[in-house]
Design a protein around this nucleic acid. Sequence first.
RNA 1: GCGGGUGUAGCUCAGUGGUAGAGCGUCACGUUGCCAACGUGAAUGUCGUGGGUUCAAGUCCCAUCACCCGCUCCA
Length: 488
Amino acid sequence: MARITKLEDIVSLCKRRGFIFQSSEIYGGLASCYDYGPLGVELKNNVKKAWWNSVVQMRDDVVGLDCSILMHPLVWKASGHVDKFADLIAECKKCNARTRVDHLAEHAEEHTEHISIDAAMAKEHDLSNKVCPNCGAVGGFTEPMPFKLMFETQMGANVDDSMTMHLRPETAQGIFANFRNVLDTTRVKIPFGIAQIGKSFRNEVTTKAFIFRTREFEQAELEFFCEPGTDEKWFEHWKKTRFDWYVELGIKKENLRMRDHAGDELAHYAKSCVDVEYKFPLGSGDWQELEGIANRTDFDLRQHQRGIRTLNKWFENNRLMDKIELAAEAEDYESGPLSYFDDEQKKRYIPYVIEPSAGIDRSALAFLVDAYDEEEVRGEKRNLLRFHHALAPIKVGVFPLVKREGMPEIAKNIYNDLKRHFNCFYDEKGAVGRRYRRQDEAGTPFCITVDGQTKEDNTVTVRDRDSMEQVRVATDQLRSHLQERLDM
RNA sequence: GCGGGUGUAGCUCAGUGGUAGAGCGUCACGUUGCCAACGUGAAUGUCGUGGGUUCAAGUCCCAUCACCCGCUCCA
């Protein structure tokens, strides 16, 4: 079982086969941005399809949603991102190591709370007695520098009237903001979930490591709403369900693990959190997060109830976000607009939320890396991608054995028929062996070859990618034969 | 951001200050009747980018961009 052992080899494979290119490569590249090539976009779409199929289509308790990337500025005030998605960082002049100012506590182990960046900036920061955790130098820090981790943009063509907006740093808030809409229009009952796939943007302090941490990335998120007290049961349910999803789609179990977050690692909103991690072949051989599953409690819905109570204040302050504080929580918040009324129990409450949040780009890459294999066939090396059938960018290759005697015409007819049902690829160039191997490298599960016998009895060969074995199938049975073997 | 390394054809890489190269891949033609066959031929280069030194720079110097490795960071 061959395995890619270096990130460089992944990058090379992705480029060579047209899976992933660097963005703006002809201009020297743009840091942290990548494009999906012809095979890559099929793979990525298939990953999204598989997720949607598992999380939405096959479940009776989840509905879908697709929100805009730009949202009302108060959304990010309420969610905490405006204040907490910004850090003060100081740099040690001696060793150049950067450390968050709030981590420069007297007691190094202490986990300090985030505070508003404006408040933090206003606060006096006496760093003269602070110790650099990296080199031990005392008081050798630069002035604190603010880091804003959300992308800012302007809405409105008239510069004077335009409003500063943020590109969403997670898709989740769009789901919370539509909680009421979904409740009112779909007859869902708790427990139920709302799922969404889409782009998010974060100005990471450091990117690096190919597409593992990029500033523009795609998330598949589910917010699963449940009654407080049942949240731990649902948390366990989604842990298992999401872990199994990767295994069912072919990730080798030894490369996948579940890691619990330690208490001091938990985000401010989370009661508990686990990561699904994949053993990517990075230099250090480290495990990397594919998906985080968090118990967000009722934090978000409660925050948005405070957010909508802040609207007037925001208008009164000329829509200047840094002039206002989020309104205090109402005393009867549990019966607020984002609460849920349980008709059976005759009870009103703010639901708890279990959030499985998967990185689509990371997952696509994990599926790609995990599928990679090399083997020796008659003294020759064979490279192939053993994709799960559902993920394979191309499902079927269609070839005439040779480019003569009417074989291409028959093969083309088969191709034109099959491509209405599967993603197919037609190839008549060169030796058939080479065409097989090319499809192996793209991860195509089946190749159909029209040969001399086809004209006599209307059968073709169907060749399996993994075993290289062939069976003869009647042309009028091809579609059902493939549908069955592809499980489509 | 720091330290180290890399950047030459689609990929992997060679290239001693003096004509831009190889293997693989791609394409065409011929041959070939089921697993990267063979033959002949062809295309493909801002040598990452911009300056500088020099008669002459892929090669030396400076800056810059991008990627990799190690720190750091990861709300």
